[in-house]
Computed example of a mutant assay.
Amino acid sequence: MNHSMNLSSAAIQGMGTALPVHSVSQTDIAELIASSLHDRPDLARFAKRVFKSCGVDTRYTVEPSYLGTLEHCRYLPSTDESDIPTTKERMNTYKQEALPLGIEAAQKALQDANMSPDKITHLITVSCTGQYSPGLDVLLIPQLGLSPRVNRMPLIFHGCAAGLKAIQMARDIVQGAPGSQVLIVCVELCTLHFQPVKERESLFSASLFGDGASACIVGAPQSQDLHYLDLGTGYSVLLPDSTEDMTWEVGNHGYDLYLSPRIPKLLGVHLEEELRQLLQSEELPELWAIHPGGRGIVDAVQNVMNLEDEQTKYSREILRTVGNLSSNTILFVLNAMRAEMAAGQRPSTEGVAMAFGPGLTAELMKFTYVPAFSPAVKEEKDHALL
Rank of each mutant, 00 (worst) to 15 (best):
A106Q: 06
D39Y: 10
V197N: 03
V182H: 05
E283N: 12
I84E: 05
N335T: 14
P285V: 05
S374R: 15
H22G: 02
Y94D: 02
D118F: 07
Q111D: 14
L257W: 03
S348D: 08
R49M: 13
T233I: 03
S36A: 15
G68R: 13
I124G: 00
D172Y: 00
T27D: 15
Y66S: 02
D245F: 06
E274I: 08
A98Q: 00
P20F: 11
H38I: 12
D230G: 09
M91K: 06
R316T: 07
S23T: 01
D256A: 11
L146K: 06
L226H: 11
H3C: 08
I217Q: 03
A336I: 01
L67Q: 12
L37Q: 10
G145Y: 10
R49F: 04
Y60P: 01
A300D: 05
E282W: 00
Y228E: 02
R74Y: 09
K381P: 01
A106G: 06
H291L: 09
M115R: 03
V333I: 11
Q277K: 15
G294R: 09
S36L: 14
L271F: 14
R40Q: 15
E350A: 13
A289R: 01
L325Y: 09
F204R: 13
K381L: 15
H253I: 06
Q195N: 12
L192V: 04
V250C: 11
T321Q: 14
S147Q: 12
R90I: 00
M337T: 05
S180D: 15
S116V: 12
T247N: 10
V150C: 07
P240Y: 08
S9N: 11
Q96W: 00
Q143G: 02
F373I: 11
I263H: 04
V218K: 06
S326E: 07
K265R: 14
V333W: 06
P117M: 06
R295M: 12
D39W: 10
G359D: 07
C128V: 06
K378S: 14
A11W: 04
N6F: 05
T321S: 15
L275D: 00
P371R: 03
Y94L: 05
Y369V: 07
Y132T: 12
Y314N: 10
S78Y: 13
